[in-house]
Amino acid sequence: MKASIRNDPHFRPLVILAACIVLLSAVDWGQWRFLSAATPFSTLQTFANIGLVALGLGLTMMIREFDLSVVGMFGLAGCVAVMTGAAHPWFGIACAIAIGLAAGIIQGLIMVRFALGSVGVTLGGLLTFVGLAHVLTENRSVPYDNFRVALLVNEPFAGLLSVRSGVSLAIFAVVALTFGFTRLGRDIIAIGSDRRAAMIAGVNVDAFIVGIFAFSGVCAAATGALLSYSLASASPAGLSDVLVPAAAAAILGGVSLGGGSGRPLGIATGALVLAVLRSGLNAVEAPPFVNDIAMGAILLTVAIGDGPYLMRRLRQLAARERTDR
């Protein structure tokens, strides 16, 4: 039983989460900056910034693809929402999500129709979306004048949540339930595990690819739009540093790039780890680079730990030591 827990990739994010909380508490000991009532709220706010993007990206990683375009869509959707949603915020959100959906579907169809890898296609998508954002905003930062909405989306309710984090958590819950209790989850794992096999077994692989990229586009768009509302402005260049945390969250959450593992709750935990880290470091007033370095170090460690040749190399080193002796 113990061994099975240790080998379960979904157990890892919980360990890292616990380690982060313990470490931050220790740093903060006695000062009650990290261990304060404000921390959970700010943690969830940060979670709302990256969680859904990580979910979309993570799902593409689960089927052994990689959606680079989330970065571009994140920024583009923010600009679109701010520009169209001044009078009717719902309309702005709808526009942003429609664009995310359309972009995801188009990219997915291109991959399926022309049998292309996702990195190339979504790189094209990324550059195109960033370009569109620049063109639409004429290279300027666009203010969002509807301050009532800006305040509303960040307004705390139920002590912990805001509209943004509530939406994120709700979507996570829906996706996690769908993944766990319907055929879809196992089909996705099967596609990631062996795509050709899944196809021959009768899984409609093409539909899944298009669907997952569409979902990823929607996630990035919704997050970008809500974040831009909450910041009361959008700029084409200002939102581009979402790829690192999103990929990190997915990887931390147990999504393996070799495919065949990962689940939505794991990604949520991964995103939570990064959110705790960031808001915790803010709370204890650590300089900003600590967060970058911590995130990079964690990501690198996990990447090396997941390296398929790690055990083989270590054994080689051990063997060399034996012969030297």
Binding site: F181, T182, R183, L184, R186, D187, I189, A190, G192, S193, D194, R196, A197, A198, M199, I200, A201, G202, V203, G259, G260, S261
Partner: peptide
């Protein structure tokens, strides 16, 4: 055409047209 990461049960039903979404 088996997915190595799934169980025998899941593989037997993988892609089967007879499995409804909620089952």
């Amino acid at each position: 055409s088996l997915a190595p990461h799934l169980s025998i049960l899941d593989n037997i039903w993988l892609g089967s047209a007879g499995v409804p979404l909620l089952h």
